[in-house]
Design a protein around this nucleic acid. Structure first.
Lengths: 225, 225
DNA sequence: CCCATGATTCAACATCTGTTGAATTGGAGT
DNA sequence: ACTCCAATTCAACAGATGTTGAATCATGGG
């Protein structure tokens, strides 16, 4: 006859699946996607690892839920920007794209390391999940660039696909690497490293693609809000 | 009484530690640094996992040996380029830096994914090992840029630290991501993607930093050899 | 008041990881 | 021919990982 009588049962407070996602994001942010263990996520969320399997089918499903929560708003905003038929000059539209990405990604190192980790693995690692989320974003920006060429604001030689890649990748790189790596490797004083980095980058980028690079950039709205 | 009589003993052919490093590199290239297991490396090398511990103290030591084999030649070439006191215009010197990096890294996806993986992890992940190997490389390029400013070839506002970062990071990104990710996400036809990407990038970069961006680039030597 | 159902936990599983100690072999030196 | 050492392998360790089945609790409905 066994004598089991241990305090199991649920915590008094219910656990919202969103709280688990928050915890997962936090752990991904500091451990990387691959190294983040379910037990670490559960510890961060303050629950049992098995509970995660009650709310999500698997680790991968949790990952998918994370993407589904973060990407659609970005897609929508960039989509609106690309469809917009106003008179805004190309430089301002591109800067607006950077601002949108920045607003949505700057406080979410988890999703960034997650994107990078999966994308960087290469062709087969780029899970179709991520590809589907990212593709519309890239297409919107490519459209901005193509229209810039058509309007004559950009050089005729500009290759929209490649320059889209330059823009988006460097945005991510600056967010993650400039504040941490640059001070250690190149003795750059931290300070407002990210804002300075992005502004400098856009200035360089714009001179690189503009038909008339000597024409100074219009005053750009600040990065946040 | 046990009855042990199994065929142990060494393989007929001795195993050069360099062969193990080659195998490690191959596995790192396709699995990523973190996910690459010693057993997978041993399988690739065709030896027992324990043998790796005979030649190297640990996985980390093997990693260090990999870096020590690859980086010093790059450091030397870039160092010579930075010290060179000739008349070569700044644009050609910078393009030469890109060519040097390209020559040494283009056939070594293992070392690239290894650099990226460790660097991207952020501040504490950037092991001092890598930092010490990379720092001199970055410093050489920064010196090229600073001299370009001093000579009046580059804009006065150019920030050498940041623009060094732009140059080096995008080189790595192009090598790894342009051929694999771009065709899948942005429908870019593969073909000579890397060479085209690097040339396009340098053209954009140069217009971004040059004092006179309208002055066309001099003819650039081909990337390889 | 009872019971069904949803939420939570415990304990265990098989598997993989880096690492080590002891056993075994081949060949070089004498 | 014998010895000794370097090189290699086997088997096992302790710990971590993703996952699952069954047990437990809390609570709302009848």
């Amino acid at each position: 006859m066994p004598a089991p009588a241990r305090p199991r049962g649920p915590k008094p407070t219910r656990m919202d699946p969103d709280q688990i996602l928050d915890a997962a994001l936090a752990v991904f942010a500091r451990e990387g996607l691959h190294a983040a263990s379910l037990r670490a996520i559960a510890r961060q969320a303050g629950c049992d690892p098995a509970l995660i399997y009650y709310h999500f089918d698997s680790k991968e499903a949790m990952f998918a839920a994370l993407l589904a929560r973060r990407f659609p708003p970005i897609r929508q905003e960039l989509g609106r920007l690309a469809e917009e038929t106003g008179e805004r000059p190309t430089a301002l539209r591109l800067w607006e794209a950077i601002r949108i990405l920045h607003r949505h990604l700057k406080d979410d190192p988890g999703i960034r390391s997650l994107i990078r980790g999966e994308i960087v693995r290469g062709a087969e690692g780029l899970s179709d999940l991520i590809k589907e989320q990212i593709r519309p974003i890239a297409l919107s920006i490519r459209q901005l660039l193509a229209e810039g060429v058509a309007r004559g604001d950009l050089r005729a030689e500009v290759q929209p696909s490649l320059t889209t890649f330059f823009l988006v990748r460097m945005e991510l790189e600056i967010l993650d690497l400039v504040p941490t790596v640059l001070p250690r490797v190149l003795d750059l004083p931290p300070g407002d490293a990210v804002a300075n980095g992005l502004a400098t980058w856009f200035d360089l980028y714009w001179r690189g693609i503009a038909r008339d690079p000597s024409m100074p950039l219009p005053p750009l709205p600040r990065l946040d809000a």
